[in-house]
Design a protein around this nucleic acid. Structure first.
Lengths: 348, 348
DNA sequence: GTGAAAGCGCTAACAA
DNA sequence: TTGTTAGCGCTTTCAC
């Protein structure tokens, strides 16, 4: 990297002082138009760009934000990353990204590491331990993305999980399903709690009593979803749910495998609705009915909100944004087979 | 971020000079064991962490590397990101990630931005314009990941695209296919060229003449793959390929849609092999035969290689690593239907 | 509108 | 083994 040009080189060529060059970049209004143009012109020719490190050190903060997210491998999260990156790039902020893999320790390390890079703000998809961890970064402006840490007064940008789930389960009740199972996420994550609440609401609205044993908790991944669904689906036909609402996309895959293992046809023997859309949901035959989330927009908005807040100053009240989900009906749901017919089938 | 502790605070409490504190962290061997422990202990209590910015500025380089990749949304690329991140985190490097979206301009901007953060090295998945762009970062140690920019003497970490493709197409020739189409990527990307070469080799080995009109170029995305496959598959049955080798995963989706649109059954009417494995390839029915790439390992290795090079000093010869691909036979390929039977079918 | 000078937090000579 | 000192490249008072 020997080719770094510094302020002084520009200053010399432009016959001005360091300070003027600096101002030409950071406070253009404070410098004479002609001088400014000359400086910028020369800087451009030389390929000069202010050293972010020095600048950040001097100003006490860098033109950057942190992004802490659980796992880029989940395509939904990749969308979030992209949204944040794009919004940040548009306004010339650099993003420091860290993965937690849902591990609070990694989250803490990420925060420590981040801190020493002096970001101006942070967008975080909090782990269960975030309440504690976030004290590490003092009063750094933070926006919680996708889910809430539980810190009161926190700024959050999330989707309407409860409403989205409610609509999904309503769809199932309207089709005539009575035994609707749910594969839920771990209940120390706000999204899982909210999606579960939506499930309960829809059931209540349809006058179907809530049965705790129809709800199984999974670990948010394929294997967890598979296990949970297996548990639900391997019951005798009279107890087995005729429909399944699955709380996230990885677990939906697991549930599909579980259904296949048990020889259950979708949607004839089992209706499935997943939360979060994906490539394979569209591609599978039958394609899977889902509650889609505007992940990219959510992340983009979160980033813009953060940057606005940084540039326009603090807001008084906590920002709490909820974006609507989008119910996409495909072909993985159908009316349940009548009990009668089902019984006959079993007698055979 | 008022809570940043600095060297002086630690130094005061530990009754030593700033320099000693600094040394305790960066050259522990140069400081008396007892002093070091005391310093570290106090630093720990205070939650002190050296400011990366100041440190980097002073040393002329930061404990970080750049990662420039085309698009995190492609799950294959997400794997690469994860691999690099994990390898970097393990050795306490921070990763600056930028997306190019295959756009050389964005790549240039990313490099400019990166430069001013003084990374120690760079891992890049080069765009077509990388040869030119990379001059921006002077002699920064660079490793090209997944594909080659074409700069001679460059360090590269890639998979054996040619070999992988050859095996895939061999599989098809062995099944008895004679008219094997290829949906290839844009030929200004090294991977596309190599995969095309593998296709040609396998054909030659089977004594099947290469027909340029059986190769269609797509834009690396679903729509491009769909268009290219449509072109190939909408020909009359006697000219239509009985098998398709598709050069990347997004385009494979497009090809599958094209086949469905035309009512072609997989694998009865059309065998498909894709390059790059994915979630949906396993999940689809029939599941798709693919050439899988060890993306995570590739990226992890690239990062380790870079860091080794940084820490152990320059190597003389360019590093050029090729990892083997893994052919996964699933259920999207079968022997072609005999011409005779096919003809009869058409007469009906 | 511009320049001189101080200093962000750290590390690396150099001295002791 | 430790301390003193200078300075990385930049921005920002404070003068002029």
């Amino acid at each position: 990297m020997e080719i770094m040009i510094d302020v002084d080189q520009v200053a010399n060529l432009a016959q001005v002082s360091r300070a003027t060059v600096s101002r030409a970049f950071t406070r253009p209004d404070l410098v004479n138009a002609k001088t400014r143009e000359r400086v910028l012109e020369i800087a451009n020719q030389l390929g000069y760009q202010p050293n972010q490190l020095a600048s950040a050190l001097r100003r006490g903060q860098s033109q950057s934000i942190g992004l802490i997210i659980s796992d880029v491998l989940n395509p939904g999260n990749a969308m979030l990353v992209k949204g944040v990156q794009d919004a940040a790039a548009k306004r010339d902020y650099t993003v420091f990204m860290f993965n937690t893999d849902e591990d609070s320790d990694k989250e803490r390390k990420a925060l420590e590491s981040l801190r020493s890079h002096m970001p101006q703000g942070l967008i975080i998809m909090p782990t269960a331990g975030a309440q504690e961890n976030l004290s590490l970064v003092g009063n750094l402006p933070v926006i919680e993305l996708d889910r809430a840490s539980g810190i009161k007064g926190a700024h959050t940008v999330m989707v309407d999980n409860t409403g989205g789930s409610r609509i999904a389960v309503q769809h199932l009740t309207k089709l005539g399903h009575k035994r609707i199972g749910m594969v839920a996420g771990s209940l120390d994550i706000s999204t899982a709690v909210e999606r579960h609440a939506g499930y309960q609401q829809a059931l209540a609205e349809a006058g179907i009593p809530y049965q705790a044993n129809l709800v199984q908790i999974g670990n948010h991944r394929e294997d967890g979803g598979r296990l949970a669904a297996q548990n639900l689906l391997s019951r005798p036909a009279s107890e087995r749910p005729t429909a399944l609402f699955v709380g996230n996309n990885e677990m939906t895959i697991g549930a599909i495998f579980a259904a296949r293992d048990l020889g259950l046809r979708i949607p004839e023997d089992l209706s499935i609705v997943g939360f979060d859309d994906s490539r394979w949901a569209k591609l599978l035959q039958p394609s899977i009915t889902v509650v889609a989330q505007p992940a990219y927009e959510l992340a983009y908005l979160a980033c813009e909100t953060l940057l606005d807040r940084l540039e326009r100053g603090r807001t008084q009240k906590p920002i709490q944004i909820r974006l609507a989900t989008n119910f996409i009906q495909r072909f993985s749901t159908a009316a349940p087979i009548e009990e009668e017919r089902e019984k006959k089938k079993e007698k055979r």
